[in-house]
Amino acid sequence: MLDSIMDCPKADAPHTCVVCAKDNVIPAALQRRFIREIDAVSSPPSPARRLALASSHLPFLAQPAALAAAVAGLAGPSGT
């Protein structure tokens, strides 16, 4: 088990994080802290794009259409 998010592999590419506002497993404040910690160790420094959903812990089950729309919105105009 990891003792800290800092023990995870470092993000060296642009990345996006989804904050699930109604998550009862990992509170949104802790999710945002994880994102700050990941941003702090990204190489080169690259802040995460953040998406927020009014979803529970599993947005792909609780709100699949909202999650799909949010992810699709990250793609460029040609879908890439």
Rank of each mutant, 00 (worst) to 15 (best):
I38N: 00
C8T: 08
S46Q: 15
I35L: 03
A72S: 15
E37N: 10
F60N: 05
L67T: 08
L61Y: 02
P77S: 13
R36T: 08
A70W: 03
D23P: 00
D39I: 01
H15I: 06
A29Y: 10
L61E: 05
S42Y: 06
S78C: 12
L61K: 02
A48E: 06
A62W: 01
S56G: 13
V18G: 00
C20D: 01
M6E: 13
I35V: 15
V41W: 06
P59H: 03
K10N: 07
R36A: 12
D7Q: 11
S55T: 12
P45D: 09
H15C: 10
P64W: 01
C17E: 00
D3L: 11
P59N: 07
P44V: 06
M6H: 14
T80V: 13
P45G: 04
P14V: 05
I5G: 05
V41N: 12
K10F: 08
I38L: 15
D39R: 02
F34S: 07
T80Q: 15
Q31W: 01
A54E: 13
P47C: 10
L74F: 11
L58I: 03
G79N: 13
A21N: 13
A52E: 14
A11G: 01
R50T: 15
A29W: 12
I5Y: 05
A68R: 02
A28R: 08
V71D: 08
L61G: 00
A21H: 02
L74K: 12
S46Y: 05
A72I: 05
L51E: 07
D12I: 00
A68N: 11
N24P: 09
C17I: 04
A70S: 10
V41Y: 15
F60L: 02
A69F: 06
D39W: 02
A52R: 10
P45R: 14
P9A: 12
R49D: 13
A72G: 15
M6L: 13
P77I: 08
K22M: 07
Q31F: 05
P27Y: 03
P47R: 09
C8V: 09
Q63D: 10
P59S: 05
D12S: 14
A40I: 01
A48D: 05
A66V: 10
A13E: 03
D7P: 05
I26K: 02
S55I: 08
R36F: 04
L30E: 09
R36W: 03
A21T: 11
H15S: 13
P47E: 02
R32W: 00
P64C: 03
L58W: 02
V71I: 15
A29D: 14
P14E: 11
C8L: 15
L58N: 07
K10E: 08
A62E: 05
D7K: 01
D12E: 05
P45T: 06
E37H: 06
S46L: 14
A75T: 07
S43Y: 14
P77N: 13
N24Q: 12
A21D: 08
P45C: 07
P59E: 02
M6I: 07
A11Y: 02
P14Y: 01
I38K: 04
